[in-house]
Design a protein around this nucleic acid. Structure first.
Lengths: 342, 342
DNA sequence: CCGGCGGAATGTATCGTTTCACTCTTCCGT
DNA sequence: ACGGAAGAGTGAAACGATACATTCCGCCGG
């Protein structure tokens, strides 16, 4: 493996000069530069990042811990994070915990070992011990979208309690009297907050029943399973309004329900999703959903990390909350009024 | 920052012993182990991966270059890669090129600098210079799903020419006489192969017209735009069979088309997608599509990288090709026969 | 009582960069 | 002509962990 030493030798300069050329080229004379450039090319030299990092004490990696890659929403947030990170000369490293707290711990341990520049947590169920570790090592960390307010870490999130409350209020206004929330596990903050919002809306309207149908995953197939289970019940036992923890679930539920001849959406059961992924508008029945601005979320998180990383003294914790927007489509619209967007 | 030296000091042993404890604990006496463990805990010591790597010469990172994170298919392949990598004690680092070759070059340069254990390329448009670099440095590299056969790198892929040919043949059998392929850019191998397959099917059936409708992206909104454009044409100018480069596009197209009163799917226009993502079955009209086994793809790629990385001598290049499967659903089914799955 | 054995611990060179204090030129203004 | 500044290059000291040759020590068999 060819090192800077050999480059120096071949270019007839000292190691220090090659390093200077690599880092501050304008401080090296043109003649020497040319020689060094040639030597690098001839030898096929590539800088060893480990050594550089060892010296520098920190890396150029920005770690992003996502909940699930299969959900397009996560994917788009990740894409936004990556773009913004690249603009800042950082490299995003993406991992997904898939709800496995042990794996997530391992990843975080690894990030600490790598001395990453910052961490964005979007998994919603990080262990307290891991948070302690990040705080103790003073690694700039931002909670994205899925965390309870913290006085240790800055965060950017969506007011999901409000979003779910708004969505369920809408269902009730459409005439639903028996609401079901589908999703889980409620150890995931995103899920817990949405349940809470739904409950609030129900509490404000006496005479409306509410239940939670728990799932392990939040995918289309999981939604299908729930839909089938609901369809299998006697009619009086079915909810007439469903709010799902995300769009994937909602789409699966709708698919299973519409496959049954006796059930119409929204006439018999109205459905509301969460996220407004691209597929929501093109589902079996166009899906009413709570839109969350994914790009803003990602960009803001990166900016927060950078602010903390670049500050000389510890910055005060910042908390950014974005209000979501209800997008009404056919899956919940019984009377035809009140349309907000398509 | 606390280093191994301070741990040694506090535990009253030499640095060598601490290192031994860290790497081969069973070779350290229980008493000493206990002292070291305590010192590590008291000081909050975390191993510095950069230093370890500098010494070891290689990292535990497996790099995965994806095309686009917003597509659920990519997300699920990535998830499979991550799982398999974790089983092998490796950490997946995921980046997406978003079709930007310059960015991709930067990423690959970074991976080489990091001395990653291996690289999986799934972007479909890697520059030859980057491939040369990977080959020159002997970094175990596997081409995933989107590359022409190479005699330098092992690959695992799907026979997309066959898949597209099969899909278009199916459209023709359903009575389509004017086929359009929607997708692009054809610099992406995946796209180019599917166009080729479609053309083959058409060539075998005289009297069938074929055209390519190019797009920049392969997303739902891009599909909607194409759908609107097609709907805006006079009827005789519209294709009666569409094959899209992936499901996202197809779903967008269908959404735009079904919004027009004069167009029915599949009666007026039959549509076939590619990938069989979860959303395909729950689209406006359930989508006929070419299923690609995403988990096998991801797992196999990791295994190939490992084989190459662990081999003492350079391993011969291996090429694994998986046949895709046509899944027929309502979006293309005009006569009711020939259903394969739901 | 001694030689030898083996497990445990030690000390140090090494990996490839960057940084920084330093030397050596050159050139400018007075 | 001289002092001084600026520019270019040097060389060695880190950074933190690991590998390896070496030392230490207790014990056993002869």
């Amino acid at each position: 493996m060819v090192s800077i030493r050999e480059v120096a030798q071949r270019a007839n300069v000292s190691v220090g000069t090659v390093s200077k050329y690599l880092n501050t080229p304008h401080r090296v004379s043109p003649v020497t530069s040319r020689r060094i450039r040639k030597a690098i090319k001839d030898l096929g030299y590539v800088r060893n990042e480990a050594a550089r990092q060892l010296r520098a004490g920190q890396s150029k990696i920005l770690a992003f811990v996502a909940l699930e890659l299969s959900n397009p929403f996560s994917g788009e947030v990740a894409q936004a994070v990556e773009r913004r990170a690249a603009e800042a000369g950082l490299f995003m490293v993406l991992v997904s915990s898939s709800g496995d707290a042990v794996r997530e711990s391992e990843y975080i341990e690894m990030f600490v070992q790598q001395r990453v520049r910052g961490v964005i947590l979007a998994s919603g169920s990080t262990r307290p011990a891991d948070l302690d570790l990040l705080a103790a090592r003073k690694i700039p960390t931002v909670l994205l979208d899925a965390y309870a307010p913290s006085d240790r870490f800055s965060s950017v999130g969506i007011d999901d309690v409000f979003g779910a409350e708004r969505a369920v209020t809408h269902l009730i206004e459409q005439g639903c009297r028996s609401i079901a929330f589908v999703g889980g596990p409620d150890t995931i903050r995103q899920v817990a907050e949405r349940i809470e919002g739904a409950q609030r809306a129900v509490r404000d309207h006496p005479g409306v029943a509410f239940r939670v149908i728990a799932t392990e995953e939040r995918t289309v197939p999981a939604g299908r399973a729930v839909g089938d289970a609901i369809a299998a019940r006697p009619q009086r036992d079915r909810p007439d309004g469903i709010i799902a923890a995300n769009d994937s679930l909602a789409i699966g539920i709708m698919q299973a329900l519409t496959a049954r001849p006796g059930i119409r959406i929204p006439a018999d059961i109205a459905v509301v999703g969460y996220d407004d992924i691209d597929f929501a508008a093109s589902a079996t029945v166009p899906l009413t959903t709570v839109r969350r601005p994914r790009h803003i979320l990602g960009r803001t998180a990166v900016d927060l990390v950078r602010d903390h990383a670049e500050a000389a003294d510890p910055l005060p914790v910042r908390r950014i909350v974005i209000q979501p927007e209800l997008v009404v489509r056919a899956s919940s619209l019984r009377h035809g009024q009140d349309r907000t967007a398509t």
